[in-house]
């Protein structure tokens, strides 16, 4: 690499500018069509930097891992309430008879596929029912997008930044009328070192209602 090339930031592909500059003023975010999902994707790298700052900001204001997870959960909750609204609008606004999930299993499946696809661009990898407790369900992501570049140091072992995703799930379940407590746990396997389990512990009232509806 010559010195001139070195000083020019556009000489390598990674620094290249967008090939087609947008024509005219960019539409205001409030004027964009909510249903256009294809162009609404954001750069994973930018998101990583933003989420990294979110974690650093939060970490400065808490003491201990539990507190940090709780705060991330709360932040995710605020995202989740909006995600539910948006996915419902995108999926049902054009239908003549809009519906919403009222039963538990379809609701969980909707989170596993639709919500995950809207937020992370791919469905989650598995959904499981706990064998020990009837009120527990698990959503499993083998490679969570938000943790792709995060290496948790040893002194914070047990921390799962997917608490943010857990907050999203909690908000969606709440919004659909299935109050639950949702937590995230790091459950690595040899093939998937960042595998994460989102544990959903439903409230008693939900199970009682499901029994009545059976």
């Amino acid at each position: 690499m010559t010195s001139v090339e070195h000083l020019s930031p556009t000489s390598t592909a990674r620094f290249s500018l967008p090939s087609k500059p947008p024509v005219g003023p960019k539409p205001n975010i409030y004027e964009r069509n909510l249903n256009k999902t294809r162009v609404a994707e954001v750069s994973a790298s930018s998101f990583s930097f933003l989420f990294s700052e979110v974690v650093q900001y939060t970490q400065k204001r808490v003491s201990g891992v539990n507190d940090l997870e709780k705060r991330l959960n709360t932040l995710g909750y605020r995202v989740g309430t909006r995600v539910l609204e948006l996915t419902a609008y995108r999926a049902e606004s054009s239908s003549k008879a809009p519906k919403r999930e009222t039963r538990l299993l379809p609701a969980l499946m909707a989170i596993h596929t639709q919500v995950w696809r809207a937020v992370f661009g791919k469905p989650a990898d598995a959904i499981e029912k706990s064998v020990e407790n009837v009120d527990e369900y698990m959503i499993i992501d083998n490679d969570p997008l938000i943790e792709r570049h995060i290496s948790v140091p040893k002194d914070l072992s047990g921390l799962s930044c997917s608490s943010f995703s857990a907050g999203i799930v909690e908000a969606v379940l709440d919004g659909l009328g299935f109050p639950a407590r949702v937590t995230a746990h790091h459950t690595p396997t040899t093939t998937h070192p960042t595998r994460t389990t989102i544990l959903i512990k439903l409230e008693k009232s939900v199970l009682e209602r499901e029994d009545v509806l059976k």
Partner: peptide, 22 residues
Amino acid sequence: EKVMQNPFHTPEMPIRSEAFDV
């Protein structure tokens, strides 16, 4: 990616990131 986007890394400090090693 693995170092600068990791919230537990302090810039200009020694790098301890498992993901970077891998």
